[in-house]
Simulated scan of single mutants.
Amino acid sequence: MNKRKKENMTVLLLLGLMAIFFMAFMVSETSLFKEEGNIHNFEEAVKRQIDNGTVDVKLDDGRTRPAENEEIRNAMQVEGSAVPHQFLNLTEKADVTAEEVNRLLKGKGILEGRGDIFLEAQKRHGVNVLYLISHAQLETGNGESRLAQGIQLEDAAYYNFFGIGAFDRKAVEEGSAYAARAGWSTPETAILGGAEFISENYLDQGQQTLYAMRWNPSSPGSHLYATDIEWALKIGQILESHYRSLGIEGKDFEKDYYMN
């Protein structure tokens, strides 16, 4: 009888230890999962952005100046943002026609009448067409910038509609050089190539919203699309106006970036 009791106690003890181990394992796994999805709290992300060694800028009356720390913090705010479309998942395709896109592009310089190409870019590369035209509008000054009009380099003119490689101080020189290397010798190739670049280098890397492209919450201060602290806000405002104009709504908005 005593032997049987000892055996039962041993079994119970082993079961208890296994239960404790299982609970500890689940807690550990849950913590790891949370850390993968939300690595930083907001204040830590702001600090990392400020300390990243690059210059965040603000545009005032057409002039560029270094942004103040508090301005950076305000631009990075998620809760209470007045521009919800900076959080729209840009892999969400917009169900619109070429005619509707062309209506939005009317009077937008070299972008006008190219709705079919922007829609083809959405189809090929899985990038929201209304975002693409909004981004192109901002970067090209509604289709009127020098990069949008094409820069002649030896044998051909090259186009850049998304500011790719166009760093602030030498935007035209470096943006056109990038376009030449990429072979964007027509507006069509610039649109399709730009969409491919954004898809492969940002959306496919998990930076699937304007906010994430600008601030990269999983690794603040690195792999950022732009230096203008209001870049995501500006494109988000244009994007929101297009959705409103067409009477449609975005569905997938992502705002869960920080632990607190």
Results as ranks from 00 to 15, higher is better:
G126Q: 02
G126M: 00
V127N: 03
N128A: 05
N128H: 11
V129G: 04
V129D: 07
L130M: 02
Y131T: 04
Y131Q: 01
Y131M: 14
S134K: 09
S134N: 05
H135P: 03
A136P: 10
Q137T: 06
L138Q: 09
T140A: 04
G141L: 07
G141P: 00
G141D: 08
N142G: 06
G143S: 10
G143P: 03
E144G: 04
S145A: 10
S145R: 06
S145V: 10
R146H: 07
R146Q: 14
R146Y: 06
Q149V: 00
G150I: 06
G150W: 04
I151Y: 01
I151A: 02
L153V: 11
E154Y: 13
D155M: 11
A156M: 11
A156N: 14
A157M: 09
N160H: 02
F161C: 08
G163C: 09
I164F: 07
I164A: 00
G165K: 05
A166G: 07
A166D: 07
F167M: 13
F167A: 14
F167Q: 12
D168T: 12
D168G: 13
D168F: 05
K170H: 13
K170A: 12
A171H: 13
V172N: 05
V172Q: 10
E173S: 08
E173Q: 15
E174S: 12
E174W: 11
G175L: 04
S176L: 03
S176W: 01
A177P: 01
A177M: 11
Y178A: 10
Y178F: 15
A179T: 09
A179C: 01
A182H: 04
A182R: 15
G183S: 08
W184L: 04
T186L: 00
E188W: 01
E188K: 12
T189I: 10
T189D: 07
A190V: 03
A190L: 02
I191F: 01
L192V: 10
G193H: 04
G193T: 03
G193I: 00
A195K: 05
A195D: 02
E196Q: 14
E196F: 06
S199T: 08
S199W: 07
S199E: 14
S199M: 13
E200V: 11
N201Q: 14
N201L: 02
N201F: 05
Y202C: 08
Y202V: 04
L203D: 02
L203G: 01
L203K: 09
Q205D: 06
G206V: 09
Q207M: 15
T209V: 07
T209I: 03
L210E: 02
L210W: 00
Y211V: 11
Y211E: 03
A212L: 04
R214H: 12
N216R: 01
P217Q: 10
S218G: 08
S219L: 13
P220C: 08
S222P: 01
H223V: 09
H223W: 14
H223A: 14
H223M: 06
